[in-house]
Simulated assay, not measured.
Amino acid sequence: MTLGFTLGELFSGPGGMALGAHLAARETGTALKHGWANDYDESTVATYIANIPGATEESVICRDVRSLEIDSLPHIDGFAFGFPCNDYSLVGENRGLKGEFGPLFSYGVRVLERHQPEWFVAENVSGLRTSNGGDDFKLILDAISNAGPGYKITPHLYRFEDYGVPQRRHRIIVVGVRDDVPVDFRVPAPTHPDRAHWTSAAEALAGIPTYASNHEATRQSPTVVRRLELIDPGENAFNAKRMTEELRLNVKGATLSQIYKRLHPDRPSYTITGSGGGGTHGYHWAEPRALTNRERARLQTFPDEFKFIGRKENVRRQVGMAVPPRGAFHIFRALFRSFQGVQYSSVPANLSVSGTPLAPLQDVDA
């Protein structure tokens, strides 16, 4: 008998989580059906509809989650939600649950309460673990584990470069299985467990085909070009050894190491972000320019056939805010194998169900 689930998703973004789930379903022989999804941005919703199997204008709802009629959504067996991370990021004010976006996880809890899916996968930034001294994370874990009939949860800080993503991107993923379901999820073992096995930026960006969309170059000002020419691979605007006083940035209190940081071709990229002004767009190691959106998508492991819809800056935000499909694939594959009773290589979770580290963590995105 084929294992099958209908998937619902809040804060779906362009579909990185969903794509990873569908790829994992295909490999494991799981019948995964799109049920519904929600995001507040029109272009992001259009991207999801254009790329995710089964998604339609009716099933992908473009609306602020705070006005979404959760109780009237169709039944689902599985649920994914990468609730907004703005207030938990290591960069910025880190307002946590007191911020505008911090409380939005509660809408995921409402889905669990109302629809009681057999499993869920929740994603957020590594900064969630320390927000408000760790109290926010404990509150969130308590809420989702006690939602509806209750869930067995497995929180873990994933370093996606350890799973073949050519980018140092560290995210907390919480997998939950409903208490009455006799399935135990285990964290999948890394497939690229050390620096020697990591996928480099040069490998990721090689051979982009002419048919790939979203590959338009950004026009750089002469000043930016001159500045980038003085920054060596892996350096940024503040630690560049060859930087001149004329082109040195005078930004008081600047600590963001990604400002005009050029990729190193032999290492994974630093974390690709979806927001930020000049100097935060990601920069090529050999050419004095910002990365194209297709190059950013490559670093996020989106296939070249995946077409992003929207204006260039909107697409940059979509790419940067997404869950890397390859990272999601490994988690969903482990989840589906758990339901199938198939053994797979695993590692102990590094976070407890109360959110405290079970082992030393290296969780700074760089």
Results as ranks from 00 to 15, higher is better:
residue 3 L to M: 12
residue 3 L to W: 04
residue 3 L to F: 04
residue 9 E to I: 03
residue 11 F to A: 10
residue 15 G to E: 11
residue 16 G to Y: 10
residue 19 L to E: 10
residue 23 L to R: 15
residue 26 R to T: 15
residue 29 G to L: 07
residue 31 A to S: 15
residue 32 L to I: 09
residue 32 L to Y: 07
residue 33 K to D: 14
residue 35 G to A: 08
residue 35 G to I: 05
residue 39 D to C: 07
residue 40 Y to D: 12
residue 42 E to C: 05
residue 49 I to A: 05
residue 50 A to G: 06
residue 57 E to N: 15
residue 60 V to D: 04
residue 64 D to P: 10
residue 68 L to H: 06
residue 70 I to G: 11
residue 71 D to Y: 02
residue 72 S to Q: 10
residue 77 D to C: 05
residue 77 D to A: 05
residue 87 D to P: 06
residue 91 V to Y: 07
residue 92 G to S: 09
residue 93 E to Y: 03
residue 96 G to V: 04
residue 97 L to D: 05
residue 100 E to D: 08
residue 104 L to T: 08
residue 109 V to K: 06
residue 114 R to V: 14
residue 118 E to L: 15
residue 120 F to L: 02
residue 120 F to R: 00
residue 126 S to N: 05
residue 128 L to P: 01
residue 132 N to L: 06
residue 143 A to W: 12
residue 145 S to I: 11
residue 146 N to G: 13
residue 147 A to M: 09
residue 147 A to Y: 10
residue 154 T to E: 02
residue 158 Y to T: 04
residue 159 R to T: 01
residue 159 R to V: 05
residue 162 D to F: 13
residue 165 V to Q: 12
residue 166 P to T: 08
residue 168 R to N: 12
residue 170 H to T: 12
residue 171 R to Y: 11
residue 175 V to M: 06
residue 180 D to L: 03
residue 188 P to R: 05
residue 193 P to Y: 02
residue 193 P to W: 03
residue 197 H to N: 13
residue 198 W to F: 15
residue 206 A to Q: 11
residue 208 I to N: 01
residue 209 P to W: 01
residue 218 T to I: 07
residue 219 R to L: 13
residue 226 R to E: 15
residue 233 P to F: 08
residue 235 E to C: 12
residue 238 F to C: 03
residue 239 N to G: 02
residue 248 R to Y: 05
residue 251 V to D: 15
residue 251 V to C: 04
residue 262 R to I: 00
residue 266 D to P: 03
residue 271 T to V: 14
residue 274 G to A: 07
residue 279 G to H: 09
residue 283 Y to W: 01
residue 284 H to F: 07
residue 285 W to I: 02
residue 285 W to N: 04
residue 290 A to W: 10
residue 293 N to M: 00
residue 293 N to K: 01
residue 293 N to W: 01
residue 297 A to H: 07
residue 299 L to I: 12
residue 299 L to N: 12
residue 305 E to M: 12
residue 306 F to P: 00
residue 313 E to P: 09
residue 317 R to E: 11
residue 322 A to K: 13
residue 324 P to H: 09
residue 324 P to R: 03
residue 325 P to I: 13
residue 327 G to L: 11
residue 327 G to N: 01
residue 332 F to N: 04
residue 334 A to Q: 02
residue 336 F to C: 00
residue 342 V to T: 11
residue 346 S to K: 08
residue 347 V to S: 04
residue 350 N to V: 07
residue 353 V to G: 14
residue 354 S to D: 14
residue 354 S to P: 02
residue 357 P to T: 07
residue 357 P to E: 11
residue 357 P to W: 06
